[in-house]
Amino acid sequence: MRMPSSAGEAIAWVIVALAAIYLVTRFTGIRWRPKVLQKPDVPLSNLTKKR
């Protein structure tokens, strides 16, 4: 793999990498910050799920 030929190209690579990382995290649901704990005592998925 070649090195970026200019500072501009290096910035472009960083932007593309960030976009790709964003997609991967959205796709897999990984979070780098723990999600604020929001409820529920009764998970809704259990309510909608038929036994």
Binding site: I15, V16, A19, A20, Y22, L23, R26
Partner: peptide, 13 residues
Amino acid sequence: GSVILALSIVLWA
């Protein structure tokens, strides 16, 4: 919108 923008950038690459 955020997903579409990120996909556009990756597709450009």
